[in-house]
């Protein structure tokens, strides 16, 4: 286990190194800069701005300087918002995205898993058909369509929920974005649990458990579910990373000032430091999440070996 973890940590560091390097040079390769304007700026002002942000240095020097900064944990000043740092902006945006993401993950699991179990146990009955019908809709309807419908119906027509959620300070502001955000993953998990549950129920050890005279509840929740849940755990890694770093569309539609907006807007604005900062941040979360999932995986299912081959 210890060797495996060290091995994984090294490969994580390498992954991050390449992500940072490639993003940095690609970003500088695209035309246009943070001071490109419809009304071009006087040259002396551009010169002063470039000096201020060290954009007049050769790219390789900027690259080295950038490493010096990020190793100290400093992601630099934002080009887009005067006198705010990328650290500060991520610090402001991420907690909001994280709150929304965590609520959405909890909602996804609390609703998706029971739905999947229900439809597996009632296979071929109306509960199954209804759940799967809704789940199919959930997987096929894009989140922005769902969000728009929710906003229109509950916000504009019925006026039950606010159309914009802001910083999610009130519980009511969570309802619509959480539903829109988890629509897809919830449906996906319900289907996943259903099929793996059906798989598991047919196995011998379940028959044994039933033969022992265990209650149906114990059979399902103690024996079957433990194995049926493994595919869900695999999926949870990328899902959690995705939800935690923010669905850009959902955040935009509900005007939630989270991380999502930073990704897309920073590229359009050539906000160099923010492009790098949000990319690094997202990569770290994704890499760490995958790592955690792999560890949990092993703990849940002893059949899975840590390394495929001897050398790994």
């Amino acid at each position: 286990m210890g060797r495996y973890i060290i091995h994984r940590l090294v490969s994580m560091a390498l992954t991050l190194f390449f992500i940072i390097t490639i993003t940095f040079f690609l970003m500088h390769a695209i035309p246009g800069g943070p001071f490109t304007r419809e009304k071009p700026l006087p040259e002396a002002i551009i010169k002063a701005l470039n000096e201020k942000y060290h954009l007049d240095d050769p790219v390789w020097k900027q690259y080295l300087d950038y490493w010096k900064d990020i190793l100290r944990g400093d992601l630099g000043p934002s080009f887009q918002l005067t006198n705010r740092t990328v650290n500060e902006l991520i610090g402001l945006g991420f907690p909001i995205t994280a709150r929304l993401g965590i609520v959405a993950i909890v909602f996804t699991i609390l609703v998706g898993v029971p739905l999947g179990i229900l439809s597996a146990l009632r296979q071929g009955k109306w509960q199954d058909y209804t759940t799967m019908f809704i789940a199919t809709l959930g997987v096929t309807i894009p989140s922005f369509v769902l969000a728009t419908v929710l906003i229109y119906f509950f916000g504009v027509v019925l006026k039950i929920f606010p159309t914009t959620s802001g910083r999610l300070t009130r519980p009511i502001e969570y309802v619509l974005p959480v539903i829109a955000l988890s629509g897809y993953s919830l449906s996906f998990i319900a289907r996943l649990v259903r099929s793996s549950m059906l798989d598991v129920i047919k196995q011998d050890y379940i028959r044994t458990a039933r033969a022992k005279g265990l209650s149906e509840f114990k059979v399902i929740y103690k024996h079957a579910l433990k194995n049926a849940i493994i595919p869900v755990i695999t999926y949870l890694g990328p899902l959690a990373a995705g939800l935690l770093t923010g669905s850009f569309v959902i955040e935009k539609l509900f005007s939630i000032p989270g991380m999502g907006g930073y990704f897309v807007n920073s590229v359009g604005n050539r906000d160099y430091t923010m492009i790098m900062g949000s990319t690094i941040f997202y990569s770290v979360i994704l890499v760490v999440m995958n790592f955690i999932v792999d560890i949990i995986y092993v703990m849940v299912d002893p059949r899975i070996k840590l390394m495929g081959t001897k050398e790994g």
Binding site: T148, K159, T163, T164, S255, P257, G261
Partner: peptide
């Protein structure tokens, strides 16, 4: 002064009276 950046969301917020 609010900061709703999506035009469609802005319109919804206006029509909802927000």
């Amino acid at each position: 002064f609010t900061m709703i950046s999506d035009p469609a969301s802005e319109l919804s917020a206006f029509e909802a009276g927000e």
